[in-house]
Design a protein around this nucleic acid. Structure first.
Length: 281
DNA sequence: AAACTGGGCAACCGCCTGTGC
DNA sequence: GGCACAGGCGGTTGCCCAGTT
């Protein structure tokens, strides 16, 4: 038996949503929730397929969605996350509260990809991280439509996320699903964060520094890998970090620190062994 | 002022994944 | 384990509109 179509195409509305349809969808979800998207349009009296309703809700009508231009910090975060995650827009969106994967995808294709193609710096090379919003038009230099594919972009510019982890001894190992942000000992967490930030921000400002934490701080813990463009700084900072961590206790996570954005990225395994970024900013 | 061009973005399409039976 | 289904995801499309010619 063939796969059932996602929706009945006959007699259903397509294209832009009308204000009336928006109102119907919003009021229905407020009253009944959205436990079953396929059944929702029929129950709500909408001539839309369930997928269309879900998309409309997730990308536009959901109350916590942040509208308006992306801030410089958000754009920088997208660029940095894209370096690690590639085109996994939903994972990137999870790091940016109020932003949808669709919106981030659009911003990437319309602004950020071009910025990188033009070799414009993704962020100022200053240690002062004061960010300011700016109109989108200023961040999108006029340029003809690119025909470059995503894979071409990814392979030419950045080391892939998988390649980063391929060198890590524990890349395919089981890693605790406990994130640092959910760790009970928040004071220890803050202390560690500050210590690491202090040290890692002295390394190459353009690189992601990566450290592979073990479940516990023991001898095997130091089988870690730190990536940077500056090998000497690597070694020295790695030594410093090892010394600092010896009295910070167990962590049980893999993390990436983006020194430019002051982000800690928790890295957790996906079902297929692929790594994922899950924790909050 | 009209035609043209290209950017921006909402929405669609089709595949993938997770889940229940 | 296999199948069907629903939700989720990324790639792509196509319309609208502002800027340019």
């Amino acid at each position: 038996m063939g796969r059932a179509p996602c929706c009945e195409k006959m007699g259903l509305n397509r294209g832009p949503w009308t204000p009336e349809e928006n109102q119907i969808l919003v009021s229905f979800i407020h009253q009944h929730g959205h436990s079953n998207w396929r059944a929702l349009p029929k129950q709500a009296g909408l001539l839309r397929c369930g997928k269309s309703c879900r998309l409309r809700w997730m990308n536009y009508l959901k109350p916590d969605i942040k509208r308006g231009n992306f801030t410089q910090a958000e754009e920088d975060a997208i660029i940095n996350l894209h370096q690690i995650l590639g085109n996994r827009w939903s994972a990137i969106a999870a790091k940016l509260p109020g932003r949808t994967d669709n919106e981030i995808k659009n911003v990437w294709h319309t602004h950020l990809k071009k910025r990188l193609e033009d070799n414009q710096p993704a962020k100022p090379k200053t240690s002062n991280k004061k960010k300011s919003t700016k109109p989108k038009s200023q961040s999108a230099p006029a340029k003809s439509k690119s025909t470059k594919t995503e894979s071409e972009l990814g392979s030419s510019s950045n080391p892939s996320f998988e390649s980063l982890f391929s060198a890590s001894p524990s890349a395919s190992d089981e890693v605790s699903s406990e994130t640092l942000t959910s760790h009970e000992d928040h004071s220890k967490e803050a202390q560690m964060d500050n210590k690491l930030r202090e040290m890692i921000t002295t390394t190459d400002q353009d690189s992601f520094s990566f450290i592979n934490f073990g479940e516990d701080i023991d001898e095997s813990f130091w089988n870690e890998t730190l990536y940077s463009q500056d090998e000497e700084n690597h070694a020295s900072n790695l030594d410093e970090m090892q010394q600092e961590f010896q009295h910070l206790g167990s962590v049980g996570n893999e993390m990436i620190f983006d020194s430019e954005m002051d982000f800690w990225y928790d890295v957790l395994p996906r079902s297929g062994g692929e790594q994922d970024l899950l924790a909050g900013l």
